[in-house]
Computed example of a mutant assay.
Amino acid sequence: MTSPSAQTSLSTHVLDAARGKPAADLQVVLSRMNEPVAAAHTDSDGRISWAVALDPGDYLLHFATGAWFASTDREAFYPTVELHVTIGAGHTHVALLLSPFAYTTYRGS
């Protein structure tokens, strides 16, 4: 039998909805039970495929949106976006659509 962590994976995709482009080089920290698991920056397509062993459970994705918007010379209302997600066995994809004064998220495929 395969362990749950071998079957569990997570990816993230962040899009700049105001500009209609990927949110490249946005810092994201993945945590579980208040302990950092991994940190990464989105690639040029706004994506992160978390290359860490994960067990099913509750996680926090912390997006440094304020610093990212500042790096593009734009004002932003949300200095961070934190998404609490529950992932199960298999693959979970978390999408985040950003604009300077709003955001939305959904579980993708």
Rank of each mutant, 00 (worst) to 15 (best):
T2C: 12
S44E: 15
L97S: 14
W68A: 01
M1T: 12
F77G: 02
V85I: 14
V94R: 09
P22D: 15
H62R: 15
P100H: 04
P22F: 13
P4S: 14
R74K: 12
S11V: 01
P100T: 06
T105V: 14
L61C: 01
V29L: 12
D25Y: 06
F101C: 00
G108S: 10
Y106E: 06
A17P: 02
S3H: 11
Y78G: 13
I48L: 03
A6I: 01
Q7R: 12
S5R: 11
T65M: 03
R19H: 10
A38Q: 09
H13F: 08
P79Y: 00
A17Y: 06
V28M: 05
K21I: 14
T8N: 11
S11E: 15
R107A: 15
H62F: 07
S9F: 02
S109C: 07
A64K: 07
H84P: 15
S49P: 01
V81I: 15
A51Y: 10
L26R: 05
G108K: 09
R74Q: 12
T72S: 08
S31V: 00
S3M: 05
D25V: 03
W68F: 09
Q27A: 11
S5W: 09
S11M: 02
T12H: 02
A23L: 09
Q27I: 05
R107K: 08
A17M: 08
H84F: 03
L61S: 09
V81Y: 09
T12R: 00
G66N: 08
L10I: 12
G90V: 14
S71F: 13
R107F: 04
T80P: 02
D43K: 13
G108C: 07
Q27C: 04
A89E: 15
P36Y: 11
L97K: 11
H41T: 15
F63W: 13
A6G: 04
L83W: 03
T2E: 11
A89Q: 13
D73M: 13
V94K: 05
V14T: 13
L97I: 09
W68Y: 09
W68E: 06
T65Q: 10
A70M: 01
V85N: 02
N34L: 10
L97M: 15
V29W: 00
G66T: 12
D25C: 01
P79E: 07
A17Q: 04
A64H: 10
A39P: 00
H91Q: 05
A89H: 00
P22K: 01
A6S: 14
Q7L: 12
Y106W: 11
S99T: 13
S71C: 10
D55Q: 07
T65S: 08
V94M: 05
A67P: 05
L26P: 02
G108F: 05
N34I: 05
A23G: 06
S5K: 12
P4I: 00
G88F: 13
T86C: 04
Y78A: 11
T92N: 00
I87E: 04
V37A: 01
S99L: 10
W68G: 07
